[in-house]
Design a protein around this nucleic acid. Sequence first.
DNA 1: CGGACTATTGAGACTCCTCAACTAACGTGG
DNA 2: CCACGTTAGTTGAGGAGTCTCAATAGTCCG
Lengths: 239, 239
Amino acid sequence: MHQTSRVPGPSLRAVVPFGLGDPGKVMRRLLTPRQQRTLAALATRINAEPRQILYREGAPAGSIFICGDGALKAFRDLPSGKRRILAFMFADDAFGLAENGRYVNTVQALKKTTCYRIAIEALVPVLQQDAELQWHFLCKITHELRESQRRALAVGRRSATGRFAMFLKMLERRTQESPKNSISLPMSRSEIADYLGLSLESVSRATAQLVREQVIEFRGAHEVRVIDRPKLEKLASNL
Amino acid sequence: MHQTSRVPGPSLRAVVPFGLGDPGKVMRRLLTPRQQRTLAALATRINAEPRQILYREGAPAGSIFICGDGALKAFRDLPSGKRRILAFMFADDAFGLAENGRYVNTVQALKKTTCYRIAIEALVPVLQQDAELQWHFLCKITHELRESQRRALAVGRRSATGRFAMFLKMLERRTQESPKNSISLPMSRSEIADYLGLSLESVSRATAQLVREQVIEFRGAHEVRVIDRPKLEKLASNL
DNA sequence: CGGACTATTGAGACTCCTCAACTAACGTGG
DNA sequence: CCACGTTAGTTGAGGAGTCTCAATAGTCCG
């Protein structure tokens, strides 16, 4: 649907994480066509259906993945039965981190999604050869580290509406495919709750409050329009 | 003090983040002596006093840092006056992430600390040339990403004692310089609170409870001994 | 059209936060 | 060496916010 300007094949996108260039200037890195071909040669394309699980926590980790289009979640089930979502992944996001040779969480598609799977054994030698390409991965992972820290910040907040506001902004940053002031939520309330460390009821109450206060409005349960942006910014800005 | 078996000069340590080798087997990567010399040639040694600030949020980012010995904190001050600590850094940890050419948080030493500062302009070309060395950085950052996700998990918990238990385990993982069952806390209660998203009173009450329940005991305010490890594990294990 | 899942709303319990007073530890200077 | 002031840490009471449990509406899909 949003395939208009996207090249087929794996790609990564990240803000350069180190102090190069002029301070204050945004620098983004995209794969060159040649690098994209290199990766494409190694990759297997996967078309995942909604709810399809790409891999499970604890399984031997043989590949890393790049999301081409769609959305996924990475989660972990706790002994108590609770589930915590560690990250949502969208186009150009990489995933498949392992520890001691095993995946550390389970990854599942939220909707129809296309991914690229690249075998570790094939990728690592290529990265060892191609420092330029590896540099992209380094930038990307660093980008994700920052994002994860941002999330930790959000989750530390007390108020549910504040957390939800930060969540909206995070989604907006990640999925600029959207028309102005429109944010799509491809996940359920309960998934948002598991991500933010709230109960799904609290998420529901938070959205209700934001709607009541004319900060946002819903076009269906999974599409948000921002009405009062200053107010949203203020709520999100971690006061 | 703990310099006994440590080589002078920058070093990184990380668990290999991808699925190489036998699943279940821990693999660690250490810099080779040659790589260490390469980094040392680029690095400036810094001896930081307690409370010394290495750089401030928003400053133009010209260098990345590696902690050789000691401990630091990376924090951000919020508009409300609250302070959130994003990470504690110990030996072999790298820091100095930037976004758009500026540091994203402030870094301050907790005690006497030696660091290595490496100018970005010098480092990047070396990494572009030396894929092997860059690979170490990739592993390290990935390691930190996992750690950050773990923290987000901890901060999402409801109970203060649970959060504190996870904090203890995190410290234990990071600073194995310690004798068995002994964990040193080089930071204040209030810094722990800012890290865990609690009030310092809650941290104090949490420690008091763990002491009351004979799970831990204090040798001075900054040294913990684990008495009942199973109980600590249970508290930490995110039930 | 029916059924199952998702989302909303309400009432009471629980936990932490804030405010405040107090104690302990530390470093400094007389 | 001790007195003092400052900072760090502990403990108590009340209030705010979320969680849980439960019942009700809404939505999607077959």
